[in-house]
């Protein structure tokens, strides 16, 4: 493989990492509160509100039911409005964020469901406000679960970011398609696939390690 090729791969890896980390960071900022809303407005929970639960829940389901490749194309006007262009790595992050927020919301909701209601009840009995229960009971108790769930989202994002290559998003997926597939360079294809595999392994390892570190339930 030529030096040029190596530098292309390194550049593409950089783009993938950039797309995934920035999209993930932005999506998490919105996704965690969304998950909290999904969970706490549910039946029997501290902010029970059937209307909110229904509206938010259906919106999340609606966005999640759109295949990513279609979502990406469908929201091009919005992308152009936000970043000023529909093409490029930064532009690709708009659909990535929009697809990830409801995904994170559901994943966080799942993690919050694992917190025994007894803990919420104990906090209520101590006179905690709903916000205090969210910040001091639900989120800390669900932290290991949230980290595990977010790891899954990051891995999904790696895959989606490859698709984003289709609208000129750059990254490893884009490289694999343009060089590996369209220009008949199987070695590029193989190299990107190997890099993607390693990338996913590293993300999973980091996620597991962090979740385990946060989990105090297992004992000594």
């Amino acid at each position: 493989m030529s030096a040029d090729m190596v530098s292309l791969i390194v550049k593409a890896l950089g783009e993938t990492v950039y797309m995934v980390t920035v999209s993930m960071a932005i999506a998490t900022v919105f996704g965690i509160p969304l998950g909290v809303i999904l969970h706490t407005t549910g039946k029997g929970e501290i902010l029970e509100n059937a209307a909110v639960a229904k509206i938010v829940g259906s919106t999340v389901n609606a966005i999640r039911s759109i295949p990513f490749i279609i979502l990406m194309v469908a929201i091009i006007p919005l992308t152009r409005f936000i970043v000023g262009s529909a093409i490029g790595t930064t532009a690709a992050m708009v659909p990535l964020v929009i697809a990830s927020v409801p995904f994170i919301g559901r994943q966080v909701e799942t993690a919050l469901k694992e917190v025994p209601y007894g803990l919420v009840e104990a906090a209520l009995a101590m006179g905690a406000t709903p916000l205090q229960i969210i910040n001091r009971v639900l989120l800390p108790e669900a932290a290991p679960g949230i980290v595990s769930q977010l790891t899954t989202v990051v891995i999904a994002l790696v895959g989606e970011s490859a698709m984003a290559g289709a609208i000129g998003g750059g990254g490893l997926g884009d490289l694999a398609i343009r060089y590996g597939y369209q220009r008949f360079r199987p070695e590029v294809m193989i190299a990107t696939v190997i890099i993607l595999i390693i990338l996913v392994q590293v993300v999973q390892f980091l996620g597991n390690t962090l979740a385990q570190k946060l989990n105090k339930r297992a004992g000594a």
Binding site: P116, L119, M126, G127, A128, K216
Partner: peptide, 23 residues
């Protein structure tokens, strides 16, 4: 007012209900 009244009523539970993430 209920929250402040509850602060003067301690409660213990069958399953303890301690935070697993806190020492």
């Amino acid at each position: 007012d209920l929250r402040s009244a509850r602060k003067k009523i301690g409660m213990i539970f069958q399953h303890f209900n301690l935070l697993s993430s806190a020492n």
